[in-house]
Computed example of a mutant assay.
Amino acid sequence: MPGDTAVQARPSIIVDHVSKQFLLRRAHAFKEAFVGWVRGKDVSSEKFLALDDVSFTIHEGESVALLGFNGSGKSTMLKLISGVMEPDDGSVLVRGRLAGLIEVGAGFHPDLTGRENVYLNAAILGMQKDEIDARYDDIIAFSEVERFIDQEVKHYSSGMFMRLAFSVAIHCELDILLVDEVLSVGDAPFQAKCRAKIEELSREGKTMVIVSHDQEMVRQVCDRGIVIRQGKQVYDGPIEPAIDAMMA
């Protein structure tokens, strides 16, 4: 079950009127591109508003699901919270030590071994060498990639990337955990172990923001859902109505 949020603690994450847009590149025939150039118009790209004036606050110990169909903007929101990207308008404030599983293998160097990448990725997440040394055996045991730990990770499968990245993140001293669909990678027993670990962290009072299409998992872990549709926030409330709002 999710952590107890009956007593509202201090905010961990504040998203205040956030908007984010991207330029989408388009391919055109030479004639169309030439006419656009003559007329002084750029026809090679168009603006896409990925997030439009989104605001919410997540308090310490809350487990919140960001819900929406593909292309809705939820992963962009997670990247803004993680600091990978910055908003064009508004602000994102985060308090606490944050670990993010935004993309499988992000932060891993392909030419380094799994062992070397554990130290590199853990250092990126703010761990000191003595902390990593103390938790190294637990990280490797949880990841179940002991046999391949001294191989260069460019030879790893996506599932092996995920196992090692997830294991490093959850063994950090974290206050906030961000997870973006990476639990869909790997076999069923390992997915179940990951879900159990997330539930354990939730019971310990860690703040979590999870992007997932696994409705059963978010029901088990999250007490609240924020639904984003075509870049706009359309619902923020209890998880079961949030799932209904996403499907509406």
Rank of each mutant, 00 (worst) to 15 (best):
52 D>A: 12
52 D>W: 05
52 D>C: 06
53 D>H: 07
57 T>L: 12
57 T>F: 15
58 I>D: 14
58 I>R: 11
59 H>Q: 10
59 H>W: 13
60 E>V: 14
60 E>L: 10
61 G>A: 12
61 G>R: 11
62 E>N: 08
62 E>A: 01
62 E>R: 11
63 S>V: 05
66 L>D: 12
66 L>F: 15
67 L>G: 06
68 G>S: 13
69 F>E: 14
69 F>K: 13
69 F>G: 13
69 F>N: 13
70 N>K: 10
70 N>F: 10
71 G>N: 09
72 S>Q: 07
73 G>K: 02
73 G>T: 02
73 G>P: 06
74 K>L: 13
74 K>C: 08
76 T>V: 08
77 M>P: 05
79 K>L: 03
79 K>D: 06
79 K>H: 10
79 K>G: 01
80 L>W: 04
80 L>T: 03
81 I>C: 05
81 I>M: 14
81 I>N: 12
82 S>G: 13
82 S>P: 00
82 S>M: 10
83 G>S: 11
84 V>N: 10
84 V>M: 10
85 M>I: 06
86 E>T: 09
88 D>P: 11
88 D>Q: 08
89 D>G: 00
90 G>P: 07
90 G>I: 04
91 S>D: 08
91 S>Q: 08
91 S>Y: 09
91 S>A: 10
91 S>W: 04
92 V>P: 00
93 L>S: 14
93 L>I: 11
93 L>H: 15
94 V>C: 00
94 V>R: 09
95 R>N: 14
96 G>V: 04
97 R>E: 07
97 R>F: 02
97 R>A: 03
98 L>C: 05
98 L>W: 03
98 L>F: 04
99 A>F: 05
99 A>L: 12
100 G>V: 05
101 L>A: 12
101 L>V: 15
101 L>G: 11
101 L>K: 00
101 L>M: 14
101 L>R: 14
102 I>A: 06
103 E>S: 11
103 E>H: 15
103 E>G: 07
105 G>I: 07
106 A>K: 11
107 G>S: 00
107 G>M: 09
107 G>H: 11
111 D>Q: 14
113 T>R: 04
113 T>Q: 04
114 G>M: 10
115 R>I: 00
116 E>M: 00
116 E>F: 07
117 N>E: 10
117 N>S: 07
117 N>L: 13
118 V>F: 06
119 Y>C: 06
119 Y>D: 07
120 L>S: 01
120 L>M: 09
121 N>A: 06
121 N>V: 02
121 N>H: 05
122 A>R: 02
122 A>D: 01
122 A>F: 03
122 A>M: 09
123 A>Y: 02
123 A>R: 01
124 I>K: 01
124 I>E: 01
124 I>W: 01
124 I>M: 13
124 I>T: 02
124 I>L: 11
125 L>D: 07
126 G>F: 03
127 M>V: 00
128 Q>S: 03
129 K>P: 11
130 D>H: 08
132 I>A: 05
132 I>D: 12
132 I>T: 07
132 I>G: 05
132 I>L: 04
